[in-house]
Design a protein around this nucleic acid. Structure first.
Lengths: 227, 227
DNA sequence: CGCGACGCAATACGATCGTATAGTATCCAA
DNA sequence: TTGGATACTATACGATCGTATTGCGTCGCG
């Protein structure tokens, strides 16, 4: 049924009814979260019966796992192509934006909806960032050191923050950064923020702030050591 | 009942049973999201009956609004005290961490659970950041300009990203940045990331990247103008 | 003393949820 | 031709949800 008969052979996977259901789930999970979406909602958007959703994915958790798997597959595939050039996470993000809007929107929600699979994606991004830090400043960020892990994780969270909080950015900037072709706005803005902060930290005030924080941390470390 | 009789007169608000219910709601909403939390869950954690929750807040949406109002009140109160020194958002974040762990954890979830009230908090943070940008670089970030709005919103999202993604940071760094007394780890890491990126952007590669992006944006602008 | 107001629990209700089951149509292989 | 997968719909069931209702005890105040 549903004709088009397309190519002759194997169940190529995509654009099948199963894929349409999965895409509907991706969209609704991204919009309302997993808890806020019912199987009947998904069936409605995919224009099939609720029973069919269950037939293809077994359970609601099955749909979620299928969504996670599809997103992970897409992201990792893009990550390979993006190479490991400098600022890996920024490029990776950009290529993902271009790959599939649906996947990116789901990813943005899944990062705070604690899906175990998508959590591994954060880890992968943080790992790439850590490697980049070590490559750029080997003596400052040794591989595996605590400081390297902390900086890499924080930087990853900052970059992904612009993804996760896209709704607020859209409201405040008057344009949706997840809409097709708008990703560069965020990339440019992040780069510009780094540039501005670079100036700021070189200023008199910036030097003072850095020194104050360094002293505070030394103090903290000293107190911990003598405790 | 519940003795202590405390002060004589009016329902002073806090530590009343009503406040205990609200705190339980704050915790559960933060942990599982609004959709993932039932009124009976809240009643269970507050050790009261489900009917009492309804009696105090009217409906589930009423509880949510009460949580939002309490968080907004707490945050704004902290924002006043924190002054408007440099890097306002960082200081504001730090003082909030110290004020109430429960409030911060709820805020982290509410920022991606689209609560209208908490959305206004993002706006307030972005506005403070925009003002700081304009004060620091008046010619580069004029008040009200599009570039100022974009940079301020992006910077705010980057900083709040470390809040919203705290679970991933906790997993990757081996310590919960929202635990009492751990906020400085993120502050220090963010500052260090800015410092590192400052070095990077001054390097040969960094200059090349910035030039490439500038050309890309000029190209984009030109194409839009001649279209 | 009495009588509302309030804090609180218990129960009941309709709606909706995830899921199980039964049934129909279609198509490929023996 | 037939028979069993496969794709798909329809319906039903038990659990849980938000909410409304009712009732009980305990104050404060006339």
């Amino acid at each position: 049924m549903r004709s088009t008969k397309a190519s002759a052979g194997p169940p190529l996977d995509d654009r099948t009814t199963r894929a349409r259901i999965r895409d509907a789930a991706l969209e609704l999970f991204a919009e309302r979260g997993v808890h806020g979406t019912s199987i009947r909602d998904i069936a409605g958007r995919a224009e099939v019966s609720a029973g069919l959703v269950q037939h293809h994915f077994g359970s609601k958790d099955g749909i979620r796992e299928a969504c996670d798997a599809h997103v992970i597959d897409t992201v990792l595939r893009q990550a390979e192509q993006a190479g490991d050039g400098a600022a890996a996470s920024a490029e990776l993000l950009a290529s993902m934006y271009a790959a599939s809007e649906r996947v990116v929107r789901y990813l943005a929600r899944a990062l705070v909806d604690d899906s175990p699979g998508v959590g591994a994606l954060f880890d992968r991004g943080a790992e790439l960032t850590a490697q980049w830090l070590t490559r750029s400043w080997p003596e400052r960020y040794p591989a595996g050191a605590e400081v390297t892990r902390q900086r890499a994780a924080t930087m990853t969270a900052m970059h992904l923050g612009t993804l996760v909080l896209h709704a607020h950015l859209a409201r405040w900037m008057g344009l949706d950064p997840l809409a097709p072709g708008q990703a560069h706005v965020i990339s440019a803005a992040m780069l510009d923020v780094y540039t501005a902060m670079s100036d700021y930290l070189a200023s008199e005030t910036g030097v003072k702030i850095r020194r104050a924080l360094a002293e505070y941390q030394d103090d903290l470390k000293g107190r911990k050591a003598t405790r």
